[in-house]
Amino acid sequence: MEQADKKTRDMLAWAYEKMPVLTSSNKQLQEYYYRCLLSVMMSRYENPNYITDVFWAVGTWPYTISWDNSYASDVLAMLEPESLKGAILTDFEQVQLKKTYVGWN
C-alpha cells in the first residue's frame, strides 16, 4: 500500500508541475479540479510491452478508446502532447473503422 501511495503521489506531483494552478474561494471547485486530474492520471500506463508507451487506457480497462479520452484531451495535450499524438496515430493505424478500441497489445 505504501508503494502504491508513493507512486500515485509521485504521478500527481509530476502532473501538478505541468498543469495550471486553480485557485478559488470555492474550495469544492479546487478539490474537484484535482480529483479530475487524478482521474486522468489513473488512466496513464507506462509499459514498454504495450502498443504505445505511454498508453492512455479507459480507466482500469486494458484498452483505449480515443473518443472516450476526449473528455481529457485538453489535459492530455498540456501534460504530454507527444503521448496524445501517439494515441491518435495508434487509433488511426489500428482501428480503421473496423473496431472501436485499441488493446494494450
Results as ranks from 00 to 15, higher is better:
103 G>H: 07
74 D>N: 09
31 E>G: 13
69 N>A: 09
49 N>R: 12
92 F>M: 11
61 W>Y: 07
48 P>H: 08
16 Y>W: 12
78 M>C: 11
60 T>R: 00
3 Q>C: 01
37 L>G: 08
50 Y>H: 13
68 D>Y: 08
1 M>R: 09
22 L>N: 02
46 E>F: 06
99 K>G: 03
71 Y>P: 00
48 P>V: 04
5 D>T: 15
17 E>W: 02
49 N>V: 01
97 L>M: 09
9 R>G: 01
93 E>P: 00
14 W>M: 11
28 Q>I: 04
21 V>M: 11
31 E>A: 15
54 V>P: 15
59 G>P: 03
7 K>C: 05
84 L>C: 04
75 V>S: 10
89 L>K: 14
23 T>Y: 02
48 P>Q: 06
75 V>K: 05
57 A>K: 04
4 A>T: 10
61 W>I: 15
50 Y>N: 13
47 N>P: 05
79 L>N: 04
66 S>T: 09
104 W>I: 10
68 D>G: 11
72 A>L: 08
91 D>V: 03
40 V>A: 15
92 F>T: 09
43 S>Y: 02
32 Y>A: 14
28 Q>F: 11
88 I>H: 00
30 Q>P: 00
29 L>G: 01
101 Y>L: 14
105 N>M: 02
33 Y>Q: 10
59 G>C: 03
86 G>L: 11
85 K>M: 09
15 A>W: 04
3 Q>V: 08
101 Y>C: 13
37 L>H: 08
57 A>G: 08
40 V>C: 10
101 Y>N: 12
50 Y>D: 14
39 S>P: 00
18 K>T: 02
47 N>M: 04
104 W>Y: 13
59 G>Q: 08
27 K>Y: 01
80 E>Y: 01
86 G>F: 01
28 Q>Y: 07
66 S>E: 00
3 Q>M: 00
45 Y>K: 12
83 S>M: 13
98 K>L: 09
1 M>T: 11
90 T>W: 00
39 S>K: 14
25 S>I: 03
52 T>H: 01
69 N>R: 05
89 L>Y: 06
33 Y>C: 11
31 E>Y: 04
42 M>A: 08
76 L>N: 02
56 W>F: 14
45 Y>Q: 12
43 S>P: 02
83 S>E: 03
47 N>E: 09
46 E>H: 12
75 V>C: 12
39 S>H: 11
14 W>S: 07
62 P>G: 05
2 E>V: 03
83 S>Q: 05
94 Q>A: 10
28 Q>E: 15
76 L>C: 02
97 L>R: 13
78 M>P: 07
80 E>P: 00
